[in-house]
Design a protein around this nucleic acid. Structure first.
Lengths: 340, 340
DNA sequence: CCGATTTATGGCAACGTTTCCGTTTGGAAA
DNA sequence: TTTCCAAACGGAAACGTTGCCATAAATCGG
């Protein structure tokens, strides 16, 4: 910058003003400075810029779960797009449901003087965020709210999703509807609430043996659990698989068992419409979740000191076949499609 | 840091030394400083640290294509994991095959004084990288090499992949093997080379009408092209779909047309084994690509000045059914599975 | 116990920017 | 032409760290 100033015959302050929008700089001076900038290929050093007190670093951080989960990948993509078009770089860190790793990653990111942070909190207890907040770095939570902390959040309408899925199965005559539940994330509880509410509204008592708590949220866990459900006497005629991976697991199990009951999944997935019995799902637009989170965060960074916001992204039901099976139509025997 | 120094009754230099590993600091002094650090909750400011000349910023950048493509998501995940476990934060930017956006994003990232960069270059002409390189920031290319620039790269064995896929189809008696080709990325050319080589080795002349250049690499484009291929008189009995999206498009088209010819895809995808005719693919491990790229970059950042390296990640063939169809067995009529 | 040598330590400059403050300049009004 | 005000501009401090240099302290050999 000093080189530019020298070449243009002005002071560094003037160069800084030109670089930052050219207020209080004469047209002719600005042009001379600009020419020097171009000739020298000067580019503002963002690091030095961020060092100044009170300056935002034009970098925001994002901390979320396993990127190989398309749900998170879509969120990341949405957020990245919005941030980039606003001139912000995004530091992305991915920790898979490990509270300690999350805390460490968050600390590392904050030490880089980020302008703000989006995160999918692992635990509801986010005490470590309060320390960050006291340095008034804006934070937006994604997918799951925090415990006591009052923080902006962008959530999916999990309760309604659970309700819609269950109601849809009820409408097709199912009474014994099982639910596969991933370990206790917040979303899980909400989806279960929706499930219960739909059953209650239909006057059907809740059978606790049909609500299966899985040891982990993996495809394999859901596969095992579904096999178990199918083997039971008086087992369910329908399954509400409350995440994308659980839905895949349920479908795999039924495929292997050669026995199909109705299934509704939560979160859409690629090729859901191409499998032998296309998957009916309730889903929000995860890209939209990411975009909203980034927009909200940018607004806060921009100085918006309004009350804490909580955006709820709507869900919708996509009917493809697996959720429209009636209790009697339970398919037996192998499907006509080769399995391996 | 000055506060810490004051509280511990030492100079700032000593605090700095303690923070950076405590060489040339007495045990007792280091302990006193550490206590002050803990009491004050001090944490090193990475921004100020990166401002010092010659210092690495402990942040690396990654620039790749659309994150909603699971191939890129998997690469990102692999790279993120390696970088994080080495204490590096990753700035991730995603530009979808837009050379101008790529250049802008790269410039923005470099202005943040990153320690290194990984990128999937959009164009083979990476002149803009040379400017970056002259500031000797290490760069590792992923998936595609650059034109003249001598830069480390981690590539997939595309040529062998194309060869394996085509040879596999040849082994099942196919003669008229079409290839769906995405717009001119580097990978495309290599895969086509493998395809040609296999045909040549089998003594089969290459029919240019069977090599279909698509206007874009989307599912839809492949769908349209496949429909066209299926309608031709004397059309192909097998298709080599040279990316994951193209493979999906081909499968969709055949599903709709109710007519199935053999297909081998490039890059694996989720649920490939659950669709009516499970997809045979050649694939590399994309997570491994990301991990290798990050490892190589970290080595360069660590000071490795060895000769330019070019890692080739191997591919393997996964047989699932769609590639093992014989020319005669071309399935006609609708599959037994409901389509919508 | 003293000088020499090594080790620990304190302090200051520098990294590249922005902001503040004081000075100069331009131009309009008188 | 002079006066005056606002706009334009230059310069320096500060952000938090590290590296270097000088100095103080400790250790060691004689």
């Amino acid at each position: 910058m000093r080189d530019v100033a020298e070449r243009a015959g002005v002071g560094v302050g003037t160069v800084s003003r030109v670089v930052n929008g050219g207020v209080s700089v004469r047209q002719v001076t600005a042009a001379r400075v600009q020419r020097a900038i171009d000739e020298l290929g000067f580019h503002r050093n963002e690091v030095a810029r961020a060092l100044r007190p009170g300056m935002t670093s034009s970098t925001i951080a994002m901390l979320l779960g396993d990127l190989s989960n398309p749900f998170y990948a879509a969120i990341a993509k949405g957020a990245l797009d919005v941030a980039r078009s606003a001139g912000y770089a995004v530091m992305l860190s991915s920790v898979d449901e490990d509270a300690l790793a999350e805390q460490r990653a968050a600390r590392e990111l904050f030490s880089r003087r980020i302008a703000g942070m989006m995160l999918v909190p692992v635990r509801r207890d986010t005490a470590f965020l309060q320390r960050a907040q006291r340095s008034d770095t804006p934070i937006v939570l994604i997918d799951r709210p925090a415990h006591g902390v009052e923080t902006d959040a962008v959530l999916v309408d999990n309760d309604r999703g659970g309700y819609l899925a269950t109601q849809h199965l009820l409408a097709h005559g199912h009474i014994r509807i099982a639910m596969l539940v991933a370990p206790s994330y917040y979303t899980t509880g909400q989806r279960t609430n929706g499930y219960r509410r739909a059953l209650r509204a239909a006057g059907i008592p809740i059978d606790p043996t049909l609500v299966v708590d899985l040891p982990e949220g993996s495809v394999q866990a859901a596969e095992v659990a579904t096999h178990d459900l199918l083997r039971r006497r008086g087992g369910p005629t329908a399954i509400f698989a409350s995440t994308n991976f659980l839905c895949e697991g349920a479908i795999r199990a039924m495929h292997q068992a050669g026995r199909q009951v109705a299934v509704v999944g939560f979160d859409d997935f690629r090729l859901a419409d191409l499998i032998p019995l296309p998957a009916t799902v309730v889903t929000a637009d995860p890209g939209d979740v990411g975009r909203r989170a980034a927009s909200l965060l940018l607004r806060r960074i921009g100085g918006d000191r309004g009350p804490v916001e909580r955006e709820i992204v709507p869900v919708r039901l996509i009917q493809r076949g697996s959720g429209e099976l009636s209790p009697g139509a339970t398919r037996k025997g192998n499907t006509a499609c080769p399995t391996q």
